[in-house]
């Protein structure tokens, strides 16, 4: 990481900590925002956040590695989470999973080489009556079929911006 990049990130994190409040209970909201902006939480970011909150960096690391939606590793711009719970499985998740892997050329747990998509399993998304269900960033898709997978991915490919769920929705409507 270049020194200028480090300075820039430090500045942004300082601002973020100010916005969220500087106490320990602000840690998770801060990390969620970092994850959203940078698609991962780097060692450097963890160190800076720890300094700003006046806690040990390992505390931050412990939290980042505990929660499924926070990650050390770089995630794609679109994180696709397919529900693997039994109600969805009974409605055909396997085929959707296979189609996602085929369309993206990656397996679950991987990110495409262009950093655009990450494919992950999720536990119950609360859409058991309308499965198979899938989250793309914050947006929920229900009754997903292998045919629909292509359309959803195309809509993602056409969307721009750092956090694009909203735009994608417009695209699909």
């Amino acid at each position: 990481m270049l020194v200028t990049e480090r300075d820039k990130l430090t500045g942004e994190l300082k601002k973020l900590v100010e916005e969220c409040g500087g106490d320990r209970s602000a840690l998770i909201p801060i990390l969620q925002e970092v994850q959203k902006r940078y698609h991962h939480i780097s060692d450097f970011a963890m160190q800076i956040i720890a300094d700003l909150l006046n806690i040990h960096p390992v505390e931050v690391y412990g939290v980042v590695t505990f929660y499924q939606f926070l990650s050390e590793d770089y995630h794609g711009k679109f994180v696709i989470r397919l529900c693997q719970t039994v109600s969805c499985l009974m409605q055909g998740t396997d085929k959707v999973a296979h189609q996602l892997e085929t369309e993206l050329g990656i397996e679950f747990g991987e990110t495409t080489p262009d950093s655009r998509f990450t494919l992950e399993w999720a536990n119950c998304l609360g859409m058991c009556d309308q499965g198979p269900a899938m989250l793309v960033n914050d947006q929920i898709f229900t009754r997903v079929t292998p045919e629909k997978v292509h359309d959803i991915l195309e809509a993602c490919r056409k969307a721009f911006g750092p956090h694009t769920a909203q735009m994608m929705q417009e695209e699909l409507v």
């Binding site: 106490d23 998770i28 990390l31 929660y67 499924q68 926070l70 999720a122 536990n123």
Partner: peptide
């Protein structure tokens, strides 16, 4: 942030406090 265990009330409170 995606943790089933946080539905347990004391884990939920830990999470609110910024802990695992």
């Amino acid at each position: 942030s995606g943790a089933y265990i946080c539905g347990e009330e004391t884990a939920l409170i830990e999470s609110l406090e910024g802990q695992r």
